[in-house]
Design a protein around this nucleic acid. Structure first.
Lengths: 135, 135
DNA sequence: ATCTAATCCTATTATTCTACTAGGATTATA
DNA sequence: TATAATCCTAGTAGAATAATAGGATTAGAT
């Protein structure tokens, strides 16, 4: 929602105090959340009076998948999908891994298909876009 | 993996001690895991000597989605998607909810498309089956 | 009858994750 | 030089996960 807020408000630098007021999240928490986003070049920070944050790239070029990956790590639903799974006792032909592989791919597919620009544009656009037919 | 084990070994009653030995999970933990599966009619238990568990329905009719839902609750990636979201402060047009809705649908689609029978048959079958094309 | 193999039931714990709070150091503008 | 902001580090409360522990009940075998 921090990234959405930066995308929604446009081009200038927005302070975390403003985002905190709009999105009902404490400023201190936002300060932690923004660290990896800055380190991975998704946002640009400006210190001092009149400072704040803004998107480092156009909203249409930033996907939700990228944000989630940077902010929360790999989207894989289980650890042994992305860590070295030497500690995972499951065998080479582990059936569960097959399932989680497919689930992870599906999640990534959805997240990577939605950009910040899509979110700002609204629901209708998203519904039409990357829709998947199951059953 | 408990359910997979019951599907793999076939028709008779399998004791949790056997599953514990094969799948490297303690029997006590399996006993807890099996409770909701029994209560929701996915497995049938038989007490006493020679007892154990077996699938209550054919493996081809039990999807991984059903198992996950029974064992771990709704597959929705965030709480406010399935609980009453009165405690969720997000507005009616919350953009995040749109995203999680699509993610949840994608996960359910994958899980519901895979049956225990598919898992027993092996990897190749699953790959062909419910595959989704992203990007 | 009674021994035994098994399910069934309840409580407790250790570890990890998430969502925070607290307090300060640094930087840039007015 | 005051102030508004980022930047940095540490700690904490609550919940979830993955167990362990100890026992009660049931059904078959001897």
């Amino acid at each position: 929602m921090l990234m959405y807020e930066l995308a929604r408000t446009g081009d200038g630098f927005i302070s975390l105090a403003e985002v905190s007021a709009t999105q009902k999240v404490s400023q201190g928490y936002l300060e932690q959340i923004v660290i990896p986003l800055r380190e991975h070049g998704l946002v640009q920070g400006k210190r001092g009076f009149g400072g704040g944050y803004k998107l480092a790239r156009p909203a249409a070029e930033i996907t939700v998948g990228e944000i989630v990956k940077v902010a929360e790590g790999p989207v894989a639903p289980v650890k042994c999908m992305h860590e070295d799974f030497s500690d995972c006792d499951c065998p080479d032909d582990c059936r569960a891994r097959l399932v989680w592989q497919k689930v992870g791919d599906a999640i990534e597919g959805v997240l990577n298909s939605i950009t910040l620009h899509d979110l700002v544009e609204g629901a209708a656009h998203i519904e039409q876009k990357g829709d998947i037919d199951h059953e």
